[in-house]
Design a binder for these strands. Structure first.
Lengths: 143, 143
DNA sequence: CTGACTGCAAATAGTTTGCATGACG
DNA sequence: CGTCATGCAAACTATTTGCAGTCAG
């Protein structure tokens, strides 16, 4: 299951947010793909359809969506952010090529046991984890 | 086992880097603790002993040490960096409190099998991983 | 001595904020 | 219609770079 553009739109309305064409444009982009986009990438794509959106609005929209828990951040290189749609109950992780930046998703991760153990040992209430593998993708290896 | 200040100093010399008082100050700080420090934190501490080090030099030293593989970056909030000493053969991960920022290390992670599977499936040559749990530490829970 | 290192100031990059105008509901 | 959203410009934060002077080896 995946959040749809429409589903999110109605959620926003419920929460008292207005649904402007700019927000719609950002939503269209981010919902239509499982890729990760940086704010600038979203901005550039949004402009193609809707030349009057500003980068600032993209930032504001992304922050809003992230605050609502609809997006999750991908940690690419520590300098800039990148966002993907969060698919509920479709927890996943990333495999990042350090040469070209390609990101591959994978879902299987069995950390429940480790999580429980850590929780017992440290007294932390653990509510999430971030797992990323880095390496060199097939194409870059060939070069 | 842990890298010592002295050990690193000689490594630097081997690689043709000069060992200046400024670099010594940065090394002292980062080697003397297993905590993570941001560049600014290191800068501030370094100034206490050595009032004439510049923030720029701290950045340059950190970049150099990271390039040599002696430091690893901790992804705290995606915005700023933080570095820890990398302890050879002492691979470890972090458990971060999202309230107060406390970081607890843990060593056990058994991702070899998953890594191999992913490698087979995607053709990636995997050479590292980042695993971080986030949650709420015992102290913050009590408040 | 000499090239590598330093500190300063200025440049970049990414993101946020203040404010007047505009438009959703 | 009122309030929230937008776009611009300017502020901010984190980091990097250019350059002339300095120091470790």
């Amino acid at each position: 299951m995946k959040y749809t553009n429409r589903r999110i739109a109605s959620l926003l309305r419920q929460k008292g947010f207005k649904l402007t064409p700019q927000r719609r444009a950002v939503l269209d982009i981010i919902c239509s793909s499982t890729e990760h986009f940086t704010p600038v990438q979203i901005y550039e794509r949004a402009r193609q359809e809707h030349p009057d959106v500003g980068l600032v609005t993209v930032y504001r929209t992304l922050n809003m969506l992230a605050a609502l828990g609809l997006l999750c951040q991908v940690h690419m290189d520590g300098r800039k952010r990148s966002y993907v749609m969060r698919r509920p109950a479709e927890h996943h992780h990333h495999l990042v090529c350090s040469q070209c930046g390609t990101v591959v998703d994978f879902a299987s991760c069995d950390l429940g046991e480790l999580e429980e153990k850590l929780s017992r040992q440290t007294g932390f209430e653990i509510n999430g984890h971030l797992l990323e593998f880095s390496g060199c993708c097939q194409e870059c290896k060939q070069k």
